[in-house]
């Protein structure tokens, strides 16, 4: 455990140096999401003004709530996508040779991918996180059952995100064409996870696929807890599902790390897929 904590400290420094100093984080984690959010809002605005739209989706009666709904989506998506980006960078370590240096050490592989994911999340997402909360408070769209729900929402966002990050790290670490996976998880991710649309608007089969991605359920909890004043009891089902999904992702991560390193030891190639 102590050794694992030291791995977290080490990865924290590495991510800090990689991400924090660069201007990229301001663009990719604040400016682009905010501009994209505005574009999304205006794109769906015409249909929410259609006669009878409020009957189908009561939220659209108040443009402020529609914006908050989409902003929550943008926030969660930014968190989850930052992990896709970070995993993509991690896959570069194979090319640059540092992955081999990592595999030389006795450090726990699981600790490495978890540490990498969580420190990337912290480094990337704090900016948009602060912005989001400030915006929600300023516009008065925050609607909490009790203040503790803020922590609950954060937990429901962060824990599955870290599991997702660890899974992606282990997946992209051994993948030949990580650029392709990166592309695959960019736009399709927001589409199937209900980031820009309520889940009821999606066809059933898309919703079913979307449930395999923790972002989908995290978002339901986030919106319920922050915007609709739901409490833990209301969201118990979603919590259980998220916990299960996170456990499955971590299990898959452990499996991939094991199989991937075995494969590398057998074939001399760190590329599994």
């Amino acid at each position: 455990m102590r050794a694992a904590l030291r791995v977290f400290a080490a990865e924290g420094l590495k991510q800090h140096r990689r991400i924090f100093g660069s201007k990229l984080v301001v663009f990719s984690m604040l400016l682009w999401p905010v501009l994209t959010l505005a574009t999304t809002y205006y794109t769906v605005l015409p249909v929410t003004e259609a006669p009878g739209a409020a009957d189908r989706w009561p939220l659209v009666a108040q443009p402020g709530r529609l914006l908050a709904f989409l902003a929550a989506g943008a926030l969660a998506y930014t968190f989850f996508f930052s992990l896709v980006q970070s995993a993509w960078h991690f896959s570069w370590e194979r090319v640059s040779g540092t992955l081999e240096a990592m595999f030389l050490t006795p450090a726990s592989r699981m600790a490495l991918v978890l540490a990498n994911g969580s420190s990337a999340l912290v480094q990337n997402a704090w900016l948009f996180g602060c912005f989001g909360i400030a915006a929600a408070v300023a516009t008065g769209t925050l609607h909490l059952a009790h203040p503790g729900m803020l922590a609950v929402a954060a937990l429901a966002l962060l824990v599955p995100a870290v599991a997702w990050g660890a899974f992606l790290n282990s997946l992209l670490m051994f993948s030949r064409d990580s650029a392709f996976l990166y592309t695959l998880l960019d736009d399709p991710l927001w589409f199937i996870a209900g980031v820009r649309l309520p889940l009821f608007a999606l066809p059933v089969w898309i919703t079913a696929i979307g449930l395999a991605f923790p972002l989908t359920t995290s978002l339901v909890v986030l919106r319920g807890a922050l915007l609709d004043g739901k409490d833990v009891g209301d969201l118990a089902g979603q919590f259980a599902f998220l916990a299960g999904l996170s456990a499955v992702l971590l299990g898959l991560t452990a499996l991939l790390l094991r199989v991937g390193e075995r494969h590398a030891q057998r074939t001399g190639s760190l590329q599994l897929f």
Binding site: T43, V47, A50, A53, R56
Partner: peptide
């Protein structure tokens, strides 16, 4: 969005 929210119409 057009079908599920707008009911096949825009404002």
């Amino acid at each position: 969005a057009f079908h599920a929210i707008g009911g096949g119409r825009a404002g």
